[in-house]
């Protein structure tokens, strides 16, 4: 079934089987934040090291489904080494992509905000999730946890 193949793209399965930046940084000095999806029990632990306005290092721990874990893994690769404004901009772009399904809900005819998929690189592989609204919470768990970590770290 086409939609299912779009959801479980090879790159997603690859990041699920071999997650990148796996583990935890020593905290302190790194900042550690836990995120939970209370509906399904998925959890993500994000540890970040911010110095001179740059996300120097990030590690991901936790457990959950292929979508939550691969999304967090892809995220870690996309934001590591970037300036904080760039990290926040990547988060915003990704979340816009995930929210694009909302234009299908309700009676409104609002057009979804255009997302520059090219700017997302490998992350664009997650766009198949949009067709499975229940799984969007899985895909965004790591990202929301990173946002919380940045806020808590004052970055």
């Amino acid at each position: 079934m086409a939609d299912l193949e779009e959801l479980y793209r090879e790159i997603i399965l690859d990041h699920y089987r071999s997650p990148r930046n796996r583990g935890e940084l020593a905290s302190p000095p790194a900042h550690r934040t836990e995120g939970f999806n209370p509906l399904c029990g998925d959890e993500i632990v994000v540890t970040i090291d911010v110095l001179d306005g740059v996300l120097q290092d990030i590690k991901i721990a936790g457990q959950g489904c292929s979508i939550s874990q691969s999304s967090a893994s892809l995220m870690s690769g996309a934001v590591k080494g970037k300036s904080i404004p760039d990290v926040r901009s990547t988060i915003a772009t990704f979340k816009t992509l995930m929210l694009s399904h909302e234009s299908h809900l309700g009676d409104g005819d609002a057009e979804p905000e255009a997302v520059d998929l090219k700017s997302l690189g490998e992350l664009a592989a997650l766009q198949g999730v949009v067709k499975f609204p229940v799984r969007i919470k899985c895909a965004t768990l790591g990202w929301n946890t990173l946002t919380q970590a940045l806020d808590e770290a004052g970055a």
Partner: peptide
């Protein structure tokens, strides 16, 4: 295989 993924594939 995580339970979510099982349920998703079964849905198909």
């Amino acid at each position: 295989v995580h339970a979510h993924d099982i349920a998703q594939i079964l849905d198909s």
